[in-house]
């Protein structure tokens, strides 16, 4: 009887040990907002295949995402940004009191393009097309929206596209009519030879109701849906994933095509002030490239790498929407 009891206790202890060895692994991901929709599906599929793994995703604007690690000293296993330049700019820096940089490499994996998103309810929805979009958006009775350039890369990219459109269509006053004149104080465009500089005031407040500025894409989409605006500058993947109509813009200006990189680089946005100590207030136009990196202080780098490979494959196969693979 005593022997039986001892065996039972032994078996129970073994079971305890085995449970411990199969402990849940948590992979913490900090991601740009425009990756959140595809990440939902990717996370679910990965967790189904790896029952011992819990993927936890936290969304931010891309700069704020990097800053969680570099400025706020939080630990994440994987970083996903909508602007690859942010990784070398912000993470190829020595960590305080530690050896090495925040990261040493990154993987570019997808691209996107700026489009004009709209709904059936949008004014002139039955008239707008790829040739006249800029004329429609500049009409005084058309309400347009973009996200706050201070908070969202899509916001400063919208301004870049508008300035490049003025040049592309030979309409020097386009930026002012569409956006600049409807901000108080005005947002101005300055030209230095071939280069274009958009200078924003410190406080970006709309004047009148021509322009609406929201802090992020989801609020812009809600406003579009409610009829508060007619057209919004959005990423193509976001417009598609939310079932909106959209107008594709010429590749010369939509920030998607590496062949036009030199043209994109001609435009820069001077944000009204330096919001973060770790990055300056000038954003230079370039092809939109998403990138992933595993920080050097990740808690589960091996698991993070496995998840990253899975995610890259899913993006490559366009399984869950999201930005286009490179």
């Amino acid at each position: 009887m005593r022997f039986l009891l001892l065996c039972t206790v032994f078996l129970l202890l073994c079971a305890g040990c085995m449970d411990q060895s199969e402990e849940q692994v948590t992979i913490r991901v900090v991601s740009a907002g425009s990756m959140l929709v595809p990440l939902e599906g990717i996370e679910e599929a990965y967790e189904d295949q790896h029952p011992g793994v819990d993927i936890q995703v936290e969304g931010h604007g891309s700069i704020q995402a990097v800053r969680q690690i570099t400025d706020l000293n939080r630990r994440f296993d994987l970083v996903l940004v909508a602007d690859q330049a942010l990784i070398p700019d912000m993470m190829y820096r020595e960590r305080e009191n530690e050896e090495g940089q925040y990261t040493d490499s990154f993987v570019p994996f997808a691209t996107n393009q700026i489009v004009i998103a709209y709904t059936d309810k949008s004014r002139y929805a039955d008239e707008i097309n790829a040739d006249n979009w800029y004329q429609i958006l500049a009409r005084p009775d058309v309400h347009i929206g973009f996200s706050n350039p201070m908070l969202d890369a899509c916001g400063y990219r919208a301004l870049m596209v508008t300035a490049l459109a003025g040049e592309y269509y030979g309409d020097d006053g386009l930026f002012d009519r569409m956006i600049g004149d409807h901000i108080n104080p005005r947002a101005t465009v300055e030209r230095y030879g071939d280069d274009i500089s958009i200078v924003l005031p410190e406080l970006l407040l709309p004047k009148g109701d021509k322009v609406s500025i929201r802090s992020g894409s989801i609020y812009l989409l809600a406003l579009l849906d409610a009829g508060g605006i007619d057209y919004a500058f959005e990423y193509r993947s976001v417009a598609r994933d939310h079932g909106l109509h959209w107008i594709d813009l010429p590749p010369e200006i939509d920030l998607s095509d590496p062949d036009f990189q030199d043209n994109y680089k001609r435009v820069q946005v001077n944000l009204g002030y330096q919001r973060f100590e770790s990055i300056d207030n000038i954003r230079v136009g370039e092809q939109i490239v998403y990138a992933a990196t595993i920080p050097n202080n990740a808690e589960n780098p091996e698991h993070a790498e496995q998840f990253m490979d899975f995610m890259l494959k899913a993006i490559q196969n366009r399984e869950y929407g999201g930005p286009e693979p490179l």
Binding site: D71, R214, S215, Y219, G272, Y273, R275, F276, S278
Partner: peptide, 24 residues
């Protein structure tokens, strides 16, 4: 931590902020 945010006079009075209900 080096973060900076700029407010206008109206905002300091509590005006000009986007407000949402529970359904956003």
């Amino acid at each position: 931590d080096g973060y900076l945010w700029v407010f206008g006079a109206d905002q300091i009075k509590g005006e000009g902020f986007m407000t949402l209900n529970e359904d956003l």
